[in-house]
């Protein structure tokens, strides 16, 4: 069965490379927000000034890092599921010898790998620039911690996004729900700005939610030189979220498919 999902990963990856326009859009999508945020924060933060504990170079790394994580983690599974449920495309998957959530997960992996491969040269150049100019130093341990966090971020993101998309089993039009979700999640994940910028009490609340693991936590691991115990305790909490959301996803998936089979088809 694993061979099937590996084959789906390959097909998903090939689909991205088969379409030249999606390659170009992807590159623009990754580059433009990074450049805009870079200039914005460069203008806001002067000299040795810090915001939320971030100095200028850390903020630059933050935005490059956030966009890197974004391109690896954030796959619009909710939009896709919403579309497949309402168009009836889901039926094509239902009568195949596949598990539906595994199918979408494999598709996401393929798509994200394609992103990673496309952006790899740019990220490598960016990394070399930061390293040569001594804007950023990194240990091997931090790199391992970051990679693990990134993988868990992708899994957590999938589960959350799949759950949001599953609402389409019960409601006709999710367009506005998904738009609002994007804004709220971007904010709570630390995509717009580092969460540490918020007042301490709000930061504490936001950091108790799972959203920080989508962007903020992996990037904090990368640039804030946190202790191993900090990474370990947060990773354990993240794993707990993964386990919880996994069981919720199984339940919602079962109920949703039951409803699809009862009334939608």
């Amino acid at each position: 069965m694993l061979r099937t999902y590996i084959a789906i990963v390959k097909v998903s990856l090939k689909s991205i490379f088969a379409n030249k326009s999606s390659v170009v859009i992807l590159l623009f999508q990754a580059l433009i927000p990074s450049i805009v945020m870079f200039y914005l924060w460069s203008a806001i933060v002067n000299g040795n000034q810090t915001i939320g504990g971030f100095n200028k170079s850390q903020l630059v790394v933050y935005y490059i890092g956030v966009n890197f994580i974004n391109s690896f983690v954030w796959y619009a599974i909710d939009w896709e599921l919403n579309e497949d449920i309402h168009s009836g495309e889901l039926s094509n998957i239902i009568h195949r010898p596949l598990s539906i959530h595994n199918y979408y997960f494999a598709k996401m992996i393929g798509d994200r790998l394609a992103n990673l491969l496309l952006l790899a040269p740019l990220l490598l150049l960016g990394g070399i620039y930061l390293f040569v100019n001594q804007l950023w130093q990194i240990s091997f341990l931090v790199l391992v911690e970051f990679t693990i966090s990134l993988i868990f971020a992708a899994i957590l993101w999938f589960l959350f996004s799949y759950l949001v998309g599953s609402i389409a089993f019960w409601f006709d039009n999710l367009f506005f729900v998904l738009i609002v979700k994007e804004v709220v999640v971007n904010l709570l994940a630390g995509y717009y700005f580092p969460l540490e910028i918020l007042p301490k009490q709000i930061t504490n609340v936001v950091k108790s939610l799972p959203f920080q693991y989508f962007s903020s936590f992996p990037i904090d691991v990368l640039i804030q030189k946190q202790k191993l115990s900090f990474w370990l305790s947060n990773t354990i909490i993240e794993i707990c979220w993964v386990v919880l959301l996994y069981f919720v996803m199984l339940l919602v998936n079962r109920k949703g498919l039951q409803r699809y089979s009862d009334v939608m088809g």
Partner: peptide, 22 residues
């Protein structure tokens, strides 16, 4: 009225996936 093929890929890609799946 409902295609199951992958528009961006070739039919052989799709058939190859079926070979693995089945």
């Amino acid at each position: 009225n409902r295609s199951q093929l992958f528009p961006d890929l070739t039919p052989r890609d799709y058939l190859s996936l079926l070979q693995t799946m089945y």
